[in-house]
Design a protein around this nucleic acid. Structure first.
Lengths: 217, 217
DNA sequence: CTATCCCTGTGTGCTATTTCACAAATCTGT
DNA sequence: ACAGATTTGTGAAATAGCACACAGGGATAG
């Protein structure tokens, strides 16, 4: 593997970028590792060390130029140009994702959405029409899609992932509550709100007298 | 801090639980650290070490009883009984979250949803009605809500978080694309699909001849 | 021009996390 | 009852990640 930058560093860069975008919006011209760190709850040394993996972007005594550092981070993350993405699953979640303006604002364009349910195929979501999942392989190749989001039930997610990969997709964001098995060269990230909630409840106290009853199984 | 178990360990437990739930659904009675690890892409030693923080749950030569380990993990994560949650923001995302069956299936109950837009207040989502955000403080206390999900635009998220905390909320799942400033004793987790996408693009190649144009700023 | 202050980039040591590897416990088949 | 095959729980070793602290470049003010 020719990539020496730790994965955990890469995963922090988008947060730095997000903070910089907000500063830029507010017209701020320069910032410092200290200020960034305070905003993000990270030590300033960590930020400097992370950035040092890629070059020297700051000026001693001054700090970082917001706009310049932002450009550099975009270059590093390869998000200067638009990426097309496909969404699989046109349920409530799929709808919310297709309609989410944040993708476009941050250089991701939802180019197509698929569903396997014949009743959903053809219905419009925003400016798109739901396409038939049986056409997915072909359409992915046509559109040269490299990134996809899985928003189907857990039981179908593995099959969908395999189909996506066969269609040329190299990065998958999986909303289905299941760990997927993918080749090493395919990137995968998971979003599961319940998992996030469950790691917080560990730290909570059960104070309430009347505990709410569990769902019967 | 009386809690010696590393945070990173706590964050893996829900994944173990999720895999166990699936095994239980399939009628599987016993499993092993090896099998769990294979499913989750984690080493078996890691799983054994993680579990050892809390006790001895397996039998040498046999492995773990799926049902027993599942119960234990639920106990450790304090999710044996139902937790009530509040959702703030009744946009597309808020709708999808309120309608998401996965919360209820995994012992979280969406008890209320708020929005600040008078036009949305009173409209039904599933079996709930959108409540006015100005009533939030009072309602949170009435319902004794400890967990909330923020699904409002970034510019309002900090204010909403502060209000939630004042209302007694101790754990926040934030979907707004901004890092929030909260007291140490409040748990916070973030979900931002764009951040997830951006850490994957780093690993992708820009192969396509015709790069898609960036959104003009 | 000089003194002072500010802030980066980084070598170094420290802490946290993961992996290794093995004794002991349990099961299976004969 | 015993040999061989499994699999746990866990010290010890290895690896990874983080924070400290400071030299040195640059800004500022007088």
């Amino acid at each position: 593997m020719p990539n020496s930058v730790p994965n955990i560093v890469i995963h922090r860069l988008p947060f730095y970028l997000r903070a910089l975008e907000m500063m830029a919006e507010n017209g701020q011209v320069v910032t410092s590792s200290q200020e960034l760190g305070d905003r993000l709850g990270i030590s300033s040394a960590q930020i400097r060390k992370d950035l040092s993996h890629f070059g020297e972007f700051g000026k001693q005594g001054t700090g970082y130029e917001v706009d310049y550092l932002r450009q550099q981070l975009r270059r590093i993350l390869k998000i200067e140009a638009l990426w097309g993405i496909a969404i699989v699953g046109a349920g409530d979640l799929g709808h919310a994702l297709v309609n989410y303006a944040g993708f476009r604002e941050r250089n991701f364009l939802v180019e197509t959405v698929f569903d396997m349910d014949p009743k959903k195929v053809g219905t419009p979501i925003g400016s798109l029409k739901v396409e038939d999942q049986s056409q997915m392989l072909q359409r992915l190749k046509e559109l040269d899609i490299k990134i996809a989001i899985i928003a189907v039930p857990a039981r179908n997610a593995q099959t969908v992932a395999e189909l996506l990969i066969e269609g040329g997709v190299r990065a998958i964001l999986n909303y289905a509550p299941i760990t997927l098995n993918v080749p090493d060269e395919v990137c995968i990230e998971y979003i599961d709100p319940v998992i996030a909630l469950q790691s917080m409840t560990y730290y909570l106290e059960r104070e309430s007298m009347e505990q709410k009853r569990a769902v019967s199984e």
